[in-house]
């Protein structure tokens, strides 16, 4: 039995189902991300786990215990909010200690645990500051310490990094992941940032319109997207409308316009969508298909080329090796291996 179990969760706001039959099982100590665009129901799901929103139907169980009748203040869940929601009139130490105070932890133990929690997030020396006197990254750490110090059964992170600048965000991704491993706490992260989900999670649950459309390890979800939505939301993808014209096991022969090529997957004969990641397409001297570079965009560690091809516009990503880039307007040939062309359902 999984540590956190969500089964058949439904939440309607008026006539709109924000969460529409959601099932999820999270193992103890696991880090699972709910990834999806805004309005996909991920935050509502988090709020239902926390107890702030009551589901219309379905069951939430933590460690086998049904949470339906448990009010939010008895759930023993640590939450880090997007705005951090620190108490501005309390010092850092008072903020972190608030949950312990509510649990009537004795003064001496409280002080020790506050110090431990602040050490964990490397903020020990700022304990007497007020939140306003801290930077965004420091406030974020206080919020994390405040959520962890109560030794919650579950840690919920609600878009915790979206208010930080890009550089700090990358650092905090790693740091939160390391702290989570060190503490070993079961964690649910809600995010719309695919890079965040890929870096931090043990498993990613991609959500669309109130449901989980795919759940799996980041690398599996990236390599084998369940549908076109997942393939474009998790990383970039070239989506090609094609027709299945032949097959040999999982290796399908598809035709798109004037081009025929091989792709991997399962689908009945007829129209399909083929997804090819930009970094899996390469320039070749001979073979492949003809294309023309529309524009080359310099991204630092790689080049992104937009190509006109018989398959429509293709995006191609090449690591920046220091070689001269290909000029706009140049005729090129591009190819990919059949393994990297994925036939998608739907």
């Amino acid at each position: 039995m999984a540590f956190l179990e969500l089964s058949g969760l439904i939440k309607r706001f008026g006539t709109v189902a924000a969460v529409d039959g959601l099932d999820l099982a999270v193992e103890r100590g696991e880090f699972v991300s709910l990834l999806g665009p805004s309005g996909c129901g991920k935050t509502t799901t988090l709020h239902m786990i926390a107890g702030f929103v009551e589901p219309n139907a379905g069951r939430i169980a933590v460690d086998g215990r049904d949470m339906a009748a448990v009010p939010p203040n008895r759930r023993n869940i640590g939450i880090v909010f997007q705005s951090y929601a620190l108490f501005p009139h309390m010092t850092v130490a008072e903020n972190v200690g608030f949950g312990l105070e509510m649990r009537a932890v004795a003064e001496a133990e409280r002080r020790a645990r506050i110090a431990d929690a602040l050490d964990l997030v490397r903020l020990g020396e700022l304990s007497q500051r007020f939140p306003r006197q801290l930077s965004g990254g420091q406030q974020q750490r206080v919020a994390l310490a405040r959520a962890l110090v109560i030794r919650p059964d579950l840690l919920l992170l609600d878009e915790p990094l979206s208010n930080l600048d890009a550089k700090l965000r990358e650092e905090m991704r790693v740091e939160i992941r390391l702290i989570q491993r060190q503490v070993g706490i079961t964690t649910i992260l809600v995010t719309h940032d695919q890079a965040e989900a890929l870096v931090m999670s043990d498993r990613i649950a991609v959500m669309e319109r109130g449901r989980i459309v795919q759940i799996g390890r980041p690398v599996d979800a990236y390599e084998n997207p369940a549908n076109a939505f997942v393939s474009t939301f998790l990383g970039r993808a070239n989506l090609i409308r094609a027709e299945v014209v032949g097959r040999q096991g999982r290796r399908l022969r598809v035709s798109a316009g004037s081009v025929e090529f091989e792709a991997e997957g399962e689908a009945p004969d007829g129209p399909v969508t083929v997804s090819i990641r930009p970094e899996r397409i390469g320039f070749v001297e001979i073979g492949g298909i003809e294309a023309r570079v529309k524009v080359g965009l310099f991204m630092g560690e790689h080049w992104l080329y937009r190509l006109d091809s018989p398959l429509g516009e293709l995006t191609l990503c090449q690591p920046n090796t220091g070689a001269l880039p290909i000029a706009d307007g140049q005729a090129v040939r591009v190819a990919w291996s059949a393994d990297n062309a994925r036939v998608l359902h739907g």
Binding site: P71, F98, M102
Partner: peptide, 14 residues
């Protein structure tokens, strides 16, 4: 910030 009330609840306050 509406989240501070939620934060207080989640930390165990009535």
């Amino acid at each position: 910030d509406p989240a501070v009330e939620a934060a207080g609840l989640s930390l165990g306050a009535s």
